[in-house]
Amino acid sequence: MKTILTTGSNGLLGQKLTEKILAEGRVKLVATSKGANRYPVKDGYGYAEMDILNAFQVREVIEMYSPDAIVHTAAMTNVDTCEANKVLCRQLNVDAVQNLISICEEKSIQLIYLSTDFVFDGADGPYKEEDAVNPVSYYGESKVLAEALLKNSKANWTILRTILVYGITSDMSRSNIVLWAKEALEKSSPINVVNDQWRMPTLAEDLAEACLLAVEKNAKGIYHVSGKDYMSIADLVRKVADYWGLDQSFINEISSASLNQTAKRPIRTGFVLDKTIRDLDYRPHSFEEGLVILDQQMKKYN
């Protein structure tokens, strides 16, 4: 049985990986994150504090556990913060990846790297894996730079690009567009939602499954991983309102330009999933199925 080490295990994807591995036992797990372990179950796997900016600590932890694969979920993902603080963004999203690549090359460890639809400019989505990248934000640029490091390395690498991940953790500590919309509408708070950006939202459980499949199949190359439904952000929020029976009159549709955000967003992304479905046997849920899963988890956690 393979051992995988996850970075960023306190994040949404990190926690879903822990949950899935503990439930299914397909691999052994070493979870790592900056600070204490926030996952409620502490048994059945290893945990180590690891700051991905601390190159010495990263090497020490990896050498201690000798994993077969590393699933690198830790990153700076707030698009506007990345634009405003490019130095820190580069350290977290590029330099830290180079450090992991060097160790993985040296020790023949598979490196699963989480990337994003924001590597594309959004002029012509949905995109295939081989389509030309052209980021419109520094966040996207940092991911393109890290992808290039992997492609030019001798490491056994896998890039999983994903889109707008949603889900829930047991401590409700991680927000995302689905939870944000639901909570605001439940309070009858008016919300501004863009109607000129299109995405394929990804259930966190589906992304976690893709990570495990990539390890189990020793996949090499780039794979697109998302949900299968293509929709505008406004449509997404209306589907959330529909599912929970919330008042849609509080949804105010606006254009991206009127938001005045620090970083530009791509207009139409979305993925062609054929390669991932064929090579990894990836089977994503529909958005409606994802909301059912989310609803069931909320009832369990509350």
Score class of each variant (00 low, 15 high):
residue 7 T to C: 01
residue 181 A to C: 00
residue 111 L to Q: 05
residue 19 E to K: 06
residue 134 N to M: 11
residue 190 P to D: 03
residue 62 I to Q: 04
residue 150 L to N: 03
residue 112 I to D: 00
residue 16 K to I: 13
residue 191 I to E: 06
residue 113 Y to K: 03
residue 6 T to V: 04
residue 94 V to A: 00
residue 263 A to Q: 05
residue 123 A to C: 08
residue 103 I to A: 00
residue 46 G to E: 10
residue 15 Q to V: 15
residue 233 I to H: 06
residue 267 I to F: 09
residue 246 L to D: 02
residue 165 V to C: 02
residue 33 S to I: 05
residue 36 A to K: 14
residue 159 I to E: 07
residue 260 N to Q: 13
residue 100 L to M: 12
residue 74 A to H: 11
residue 144 V to L: 10
residue 113 Y to F: 15
residue 162 T to N: 02
residue 156 N to V: 13
residue 136 V to K: 03
residue 63 E to N: 12
residue 113 Y to T: 11
residue 73 T to W: 03
residue 203 L to G: 00
residue 54 N to T: 13
residue 73 T to P: 05
residue 222 I to N: 10
residue 74 A to G: 03
residue 207 L to E: 09
residue 52 I to M: 11
residue 117 D to W: 13
residue 237 V to T: 03
residue 179 L to N: 07
residue 93 N to E: 09
residue 43 D to Q: 11
residue 156 N to C: 11
residue 288 E to S: 14
residue 67 P to L: 09
residue 240 V to L: 06
residue 217 K to S: 09
residue 118 F to V: 07
residue 133 V to E: 06
residue 178 V to T: 05
residue 240 V to R: 04
residue 3 T to A: 01
residue 247 D to T: 06
residue 3 T to R: 10
residue 156 N to D: 14
residue 231 M to P: 02
residue 13 L to C: 08
residue 29 L to D: 09
residue 212 L to A: 04
residue 122 G to W: 01
residue 288 E to C: 10
residue 270 G to Q: 07
residue 44 G to L: 10
residue 167 G to Y: 03
residue 244 W to Q: 12
residue 155 A to Y: 07
residue 152 N to D: 15
residue 154 K to Y: 07
residue 277 I to A: 04
residue 292 V to R: 15
residue 278 R to P: 01
residue 272 V to W: 00
residue 236 L to D: 11
residue 63 E to G: 10
residue 164 L to K: 07
residue 254 I to Y: 12
residue 274 D to W: 14
residue 85 N to A: 14
residue 19 E to M: 03
residue 176 N to L: 09
residue 260 N to M: 15
residue 112 I to M: 01
residue 201 P to F: 02
residue 158 T to R: 02
residue 38 R to V: 15
residue 224 H to D: 12
residue 218 N to V: 13
residue 244 W to R: 14
residue 65 Y to N: 04
residue 302 N to M: 14
residue 37 N to E: 10
residue 284 P to F: 07
residue 285 H to C: 10
residue 280 L to T: 06
residue 219 A to M: 14
residue 184 A to N: 08
residue 209 E to S: 08
residue 257 A to K: 14
residue 175 S to R: 06
residue 36 A to E: 15
residue 7 T to M: 03
residue 56 F to C: 07
residue 299 K to P: 01
residue 220 K to G: 05
residue 257 A to I: 12
residue 43 D to P: 01
residue 29 L to C: 11
residue 143 K to F: 07
residue 95 D to L: 12
residue 27 V to P: 00
